[in-house]
């Protein structure tokens, strides 16, 4: 219990410290920090429409964040969410432009399943190589990110190039596959329900089930888990595949809900942001939900800030990075005391 409150305190203090420094940076642009932040918050949650946009922006970050959280929680380092997201998104879009005339309900189910499977497979490969042959999954997944990204780029500039104008994208997918937008002014769509279900499943798996416990023990001490009779290899594979499926789902929802096509740059670093958020909250899925919401508020508010006050929206990223650094430093300093005692034999 103490641990949890300590973490919460560190994150809160760090966040406000970063906000404070961000405010000082705003002064460089001759903008009062109060105005700046007011614009940011209003631009993100000020009315129903911007709130919808913010929630829409939150979904891919939330899903990739959970994807990272589950694999890191189990101690297998899936850095490949980006690749899993891209590949799943592309395959779903390719399917959507190829097949027509399937009943909508069924098409949506098929689309989501295909996205899950593709993401899962792209994670299964490095997972299997890690578990069976002890290949470094970190490098492998980073490399597989680039392979997936360049492959999809090739496809959208080659065989699947759009015939409807802008380059670097596929055609619009079959309407039967669309998640309907909840209102015309934002991209938030019925896919949000799928995201909610997925989040609930992950929270159950990680927090309440036996698997969450066994995963955590495998990460903290794999030998200990083996010793306790845990089938560590099977557990790691399961975490890896679920992780890939979540990243794949993020891509699928972007295609079927937001853009209705695949385009290059469909995920401008969502997975990296998700990864940092997941690590910042120590892989706690509830923490990922909260921080990805805050991040989405900052990101969509940042856009408003740039439009209204001419402060570059990248300032938001810098505030984010600062808070990450403060949190990290906070954890280290508070752990140092405890670790010092351990060193004594």
């Amino acid at each position: 219990m103490m641990e949890r409150y300590k973490g919460l305190l560190i994150i809160t203090v760090s966040f406000f410290l970063a906000i404070f420094i961000g405010g000082l940076l705003m002064l460089l642009y001759k903008v009062s920090p109060i105005d700046g932040y007011k614009e940011m918050v209003m631009g993100a949650i000020g009315n129903k429409f911007v709130l919808y946009s913010t929630l829409d922006r939150m979904i891919p970050i939330l899903l990739t964040g959970l994807s990272i959280a589950i694999s890191f929680h189990a101690g297998i380092w899936n850095i490949g969410a980006q690749g899993q997201l891209y590949l799943a998104a592309f395959v779903v879009a390719a399917m959507g432009v190829t097949f027509h005339g399937i009943p909508s309900m069924m098409y949506i189910v098929i689309g989501v399943s295909v996205g899950l499977v593709v993401g899962g497979i792209w994670a299964w490969i490095p997972g299997y190589l890690k578990v069976k042959y002890n290949v470094n999954e970190v490098v492998l997944t980073i490399m597989m990110n680039s392979i997936a990204v360049y492959f999809t780029l090739y496809m959208v500039n080659g065989p699947f190039r759009t015939t409807q104008g802008s380059l670097g994208a596929t055609n619009i997918i079959d309407k039967g596959m669309w998640f309907k937008h909840l209102n015309p002014l934002s991209n938030l769509n019925t896919g949000v329900y799928v995201a909610i279900v997925a989040t609930a499943v992950i929270v159950y798996l990680m927090v309440f089930s036996k698997y969450g416990y066994e995963w955590k023990m495998s990460r903290l001490n794999q030998r200990f888990a083996v010793y306790g009779g845990v089938d560590v290899k099977r557990n790691l594979m399961m975490a890896m595949v679920v992780s890939g499926m979540l990243a794949g789902l993020a891509g699928t929802l972007l295609v079927m809900g937001d853009y209705h096509r695949f385009l290059n740059g469909i995920s401008p670093g969502y997975s990296w942001t998700g990864m940092i958020l997941a690590m910042m909250v120590n892989y706690d899925p509830i923490g990922v939900i909260i921080t990805s919401f805050i991040y989405a508020v900052m990101a969509s508010g940042g856009l408003q800030m740039e439009l209204m006050l001419n402060i570059p929206q990248e300032l938001v990223q810098i505030i984010f990075v600062l808070s990450v650094m403060f949190v990290t430093a906070g954890y280290s300093v508070s752990n140092k005391m405890a670790n010092r005692i351990q060193e004594e034999g």
Partner: peptide, 8 residues
Amino acid sequence: VIGMALNI
């Protein structure tokens, strides 16, 4: 964490 944060 810190490496990715710095890259961003």
